[in-house]
């Protein structure tokens, strides 16, 4: 903390404040629109917009590495993933009746109130001497130049100081890829496998909404599903 005694700054810089408020307002608008919207295409695109606006705000918050990762991975890759899943599934979501939303609303309001109660204990926004900003993060800044000899502190911590964590992250990605392959199938069998719970077949025509609870497939199809 004594490192920064000479470098105290005023808590608010007006242009940054304006930028922060506009980004936050945009984020709130987009998040509320996602709640209200029923077209899945719109929801997926707005989720990408949300990621992109947060990436822009990350730049203003000095987190440039996080910003380009969020723009590439959060706004790019996950939007593509969600779009492709949406194409394989449905395009519209059915509305949820108001009476079934009160439980969720109550939980969310309670959790939000508890967190807002705790906000008073947080240090001020941008405080240079806050506990979060004073200890180990500053040690990394002070030692990176000497230990790792590269200018980017985030890269130094990610790839060198905490290299094992990054390796673990790679293992997580590998397992996720493996899981997706196992779920969707490598050998083109995707979609042909039919569940037969208790010897019954679930499909469009046998769905409860169709009022028919028996197997309506042809004998060939049934024989194929058996093998």
């Amino acid at each position: 903390m004594s490192l920064f005694a000479a470098a105290a700054e005023p808590a608010f810089v007006v242009p940054t404040l304006l930028l922060d408020i506009s980004f936050l307002a945009l984020l709130v608008v987009v998040a509320f629109a996602i709640v209200r919207m029923r077209s899945l295409f719109g929801i997926v695109m707005l989720q990408g917009v949300y990621s992109l606006v947060s990436a822009a705000w990350f730049v203003s918050l000095d987190a440039v590495d996080v910003a380009f990762t969020e723009a590439a991975v959060g706004a790019g890759v996950s939007t593509v993933l969600m779009l492709s899943a949406m194409l394989l599934a449905d395009r519209k979501s059915t509305p949820v009746p108001m009476s079934r939303q009160f439980g969720a609303l109550a939980v969310v309001v309670l959790a939000g109130a508890a967190m807002l109660y705790a906000v008073g204990d947080m240090s001020a926004y941008g405080d240079v001497n806050s506990p979060a900003n004073a200890y180990v993060g500053m040690d990394y800044i002070a030692k990176t130049a000497e230990d790792i000899k590269i200018p980017n502190v985030v890269t130094a911590v990610l790839a060198s100081y905490r290299g094992y964590d990054t390796f673990g992250e790679t293992v997580v990605i590998f397992s996720a890829g493996l899981g997706v392959l196992l779920l969707l199938g490598l050998n083109g069998n995707s979609g042909r496998w039919v569940a037969r719970p208790n010897g019954q077949v679930i499909n469009d025509r046998s769905a409860p909404s169709a009022g028919l609870a028996q197997d309506l497939r042809s004998d060939e199809q049934r024989a194929e599903a058996e093998t």
Binding site: E9, L61, G126, A132, V154
Partner: peptide, 11 residues
């Protein structure tokens, strides 16, 4: 992690 008047942690 934002420090007021700070800049990105690139030395």
């Amino acid at each position: 992690g934002k420090v007021s008047g700070g800049q990105p942690p690139i030395l």
